[in-house]
Design a protein around this nucleic acid. Structure first.
Lengths: 135, 135, 135, 135
DNA sequence: GTGGTCTAGACCACC
DNA sequence: GTGGTCTAGACCACG
């Protein structure tokens, strides 16, 4: 299975963290189904062009969060995430991100109207981009 | 002068970065006026309960950005920020923060309607909180 | 013959070890009689839903311990275990397990009274459960 | 501060796991107080005669469990564990260990009287050993 | 000085 | 083939 992960070499964000974040999203949003066998750490490391250790760390961390299950000699699988948990997590993630953004707006004394207008612009832009990409 | 900076001990965000971000906001948003004499490095370090090295770094960085000006033997002052610059900065900051949040929403397949509804809730909550606090 | 083995998929304990431990107990405690013909490797692997390699390893290990005997073309049999050996093994197994548990108690500074009280509770619970199940 | 950790070179238990288990016990049982600055990873690695990486892994894992707090450039501290949490954890740990031991006893058909007698012997032995050591 | 990340490479255990 | 552990050593960021 091909796992769509984008790595930004120039970012200050650690490699393992970029991979972790994206893989977590893929699992929780349901884009990778429960029970799926992920690539072996060596294979994944090859395709991501990073060290085996980095992939291992990602798998290990996500296993710690209960999102993956791994069995020695067999491989690493996507563990079950209940639909409830998934929805709850999705919502939490988004709420957290938006709260941080609104806090930022407050800290620079951006008015309610202004931040709302900016938000609408961004959403329109990003979501239309998506539709165009899909079309 | 008392500079209102909140440090989060538990955050993974480096100390110097927390301070820098907040001080920058205070200056650019105009909450600290041009020409204000900031506390000495040692005094500030004392009140923030952090190392002088950390404060020195903050002052240096912001001086590098042209937001502060240091006069030998006198102290560190807030440099002038044009109204244009201020507005541009405010907008940029908010746009950046919201874009990141919307990206997060996209990554977990949150719909346009859902993210908008969440956003409105948060804005209402945060901005009313503010008004109540001011009242 | 149906061999009652419970496999815990989520445990970190290797498959072969789970099976080995349980099969060893069954043989030594006499729950599988001497001379019993065990299932073929393939059959057993099928019913345990694991690899034949895993079952082969179990049979080999237990044969190495003298608990099983393999006859070419015939199958794998339970070897004889003297009553003395059986009693010694039972006692050793239990002593070992309890020692480990008490060590754990010591390591967290659990008092003698407390650990004894907890033990009694567990024994009462587990052994009554058993009687109820049998009744 | 001197952290009393015993490493068993010959054990099959991974190094990092031995260290983790013992350090966790020390923290939760309150033998290392909240706020204590642990040795730096390099120093600890030296005294334990193992790799820096192994110590780092231990600190990282325990931080993940919320038992440690680490700040770059400063060091690693013991995080607060409420008295309630501590007692609950202690009890859970012991209960778990004893349940496993009693299960083992059941699996080899050890009688209630027999296992109780063995337990008493072990407790007497271990706890008296302790008192002698302290005296 | 501290921790944080990443590397390459080895050896083992499991299936 | 798979994952699990441990190593040495490098380089960076933080205080």
């Amino acid at each position: 299975m091909r796992i769509p992960i984008q790595i930004n070499e120039h970012s200050a964000e650690p490699l393992y963290h970029q991979i972790e974040t994206q893989l977590r999203s893929l699992i929780i949003s349901g884009q990778i189904e429960e029970g799926t066998l992920l690539p072996s750490i060596r294979e994944f490391a090859g395709s991501l062009n990073c060290s085996v250790i980095t992939v291992r760390r990602v798998y290990q961390d996500l296993e710690g969060e209960g999102l993956l299950r791994t069995r020695q000699g067999t491989g690493t699988f996507v563990a079950g995430v209940g639909d409830q948990t998934r929805e709850k997590f999705k919502r939490e993630t988004v709420v957290e991100a938006l709260e941080a953004a609104v806090e930022t707006g407050l800290s620079v004394h951006c008015s309610e109207e202004e931040i709302t207008s900016i938000f609408k612009g961004i959403v329109k832009h990003k979501y239309h981009q998506l539709k165009d990409g899909e079309a």
